[in-house]
Simulated scan of single mutants.
Amino acid sequence: MKTFRNCLMTAVSAGLLGLGLAAPADAGAIRLGMTTWVGYGPLFLARDLGYFKEAGVDVDLKVIEESALYMAAVAGGDLDGAASTVDELMKYRSDDLCFKYVVALDDSHGGDGVVTQADVKSLKDLKGQPVALNEGSVSEFWFNVLLKKEGMTEDDVSITNMTAD
């Protein structure tokens, strides 16, 4: 538990430093938005276990299921930052809004998967079938890579947009 705590606090401290919010005794408050995703779990653990308070930071975590909404809240000053994937950050970055990525919380190496009915034995079995995924997300990108390997495209399936929650 001590190793987890040290790693988490190092990552969070680096992120807060990047936001200009880390200070010794009382760093103040930070409001972070994010979608529902298990990779953001350590932020909730750090909050609930008192690690942020111990470091002098009051962290308010807001779950907002649409990335466009939490990025707009950051741009408008309603949030101080967001826990987000790099692809989301790049999607909303512009000349007017220069979002900065300050800390990586997670690396995924083989943690993704496709869940199907038992009768689906390959991606080709999905031809003409409805497929639910979060449009515009890493999930859609990854699914397209899989489809391409099978000589397919999204036109071969029926995409249904589904948010992370």
Rank of each mutant, 00 (worst) to 15 (best):
C7V: 14
L21P: 03
V103A: 15
F99T: 05
D112C: 07
D156L: 04
V38P: 09
Y51Q: 13
V59Y: 00
S67E: 08
E66S: 12
G81L: 08
P130G: 06
V120W: 01
L133T: 05
V12L: 10
P130N: 13
S108T: 09
D78K: 13
G39L: 08
G20N: 12
L61N: 06
T35H: 02
L146Y: 00
S84H: 00
G15L: 13
H109W: 02
P24Q: 09
M34G: 04
Y70S: 04
W37H: 15
L97I: 02
V74I: 14
A118D: 09
G81T: 09
E135A: 11
D112W: 02
L17I: 11
T160N: 07
G28E: 03
L79E: 03
G56T: 03
M152E: 15
K124V: 13
D112H: 10
A27S: 13
D112P: 02
V115K: 07
A29D: 11
T116S: 13
L16K: 10
E54I: 00
A14F: 04
E154I: 03
N161P: 10
L19K: 11
K127M: 09
G28W: 01
L133D: 08
A83S: 07
A27L: 02
T35D: 04
A164Y: 08
T85R: 03
L32G: 01
A29W: 00
Y92K: 11
E150N: 15
F141Q: 13
I30S: 07
D119T: 08
E140R: 06
W37A: 14
V38D: 15
L8Q: 11
S94E: 03
S139Y: 06
D96F: 02
M34D: 08
S122I: 05
V114A: 05
K148D: 12
T85D: 05
F143K: 04
A27T: 10
M71W: 01
E54N: 05
L8R: 05
D58A: 14
E88F: 04
K91M: 12
G128S: 10
L97C: 07
K124Q: 11
G50C: 08
G77Q: 06
G136I: 02
G18Y: 09
M34H: 14
G50K: 05
H109C: 08
